[in-house]
Design a protein around this nucleic acid. Structure first.
Length: 115
DNA sequence: GTCGTGACATGCG
DNA sequence: ACGCATGCCACGA
């Protein structure tokens, strides 16, 4: 049998693909949209485990403070900053202004979800 | 079975 | 702004 949460990880992955360039989402936001309130850590886990073949825009995911949740200075950290800036997202001290760059899914997108 | 550890969130000092 | 506690829960030691 599939391990209980495979489905949940998939939901997170699908949601991440919906985030357009130049916009960002928070882990908690992804969890909420996936119907898993309070499960922000699961979103983080989903990204960590995401197969590279998925080509997910993982760099558009930040914590609820708009900050990068990877060890400051790590490879992933720098990679994330680079990718975000290439899309026009302003990153200052590893932080992004959510009021300006946070993604807001429209109703159509939500209704089109397979769950 | 218990415990520590997370790409988290939120509230309190 | 920063640390600490608590809630959350899958994993591995």
């Amino acid at each position: 049998m599939p391990t209980i949460n495979d489905n949940n990880l998939q939901r997170i992955w699908i949601l991440v693909t919906l985030v357009p360039p130049g916009k960002v989402v928070s882990y908690g936001q992804l969890a909420d949209l996936a119907g898993l309130p309070g499960r922000a850590r699961l979103a983080g886990r989903a990204l960590k485990l995401a197969p590279k073949a998925h080509n997910l825009p993982w760099h558009r995911v930040l914590n609820s403070q708009g900050k990068i949740s990877l060890p400051k200075g790590s490879d992933g950290y720098q990679e994330q900053v680079k990718r975000l800036q290439e899309e026009g997202v302003v990153v200052l001290s590893g932080k992004v202004k959510l009021a300006e760059f946070q993604w807001q899914p429209d109703l159509g997108e939500l209704l089109a979800l397979p769950f």
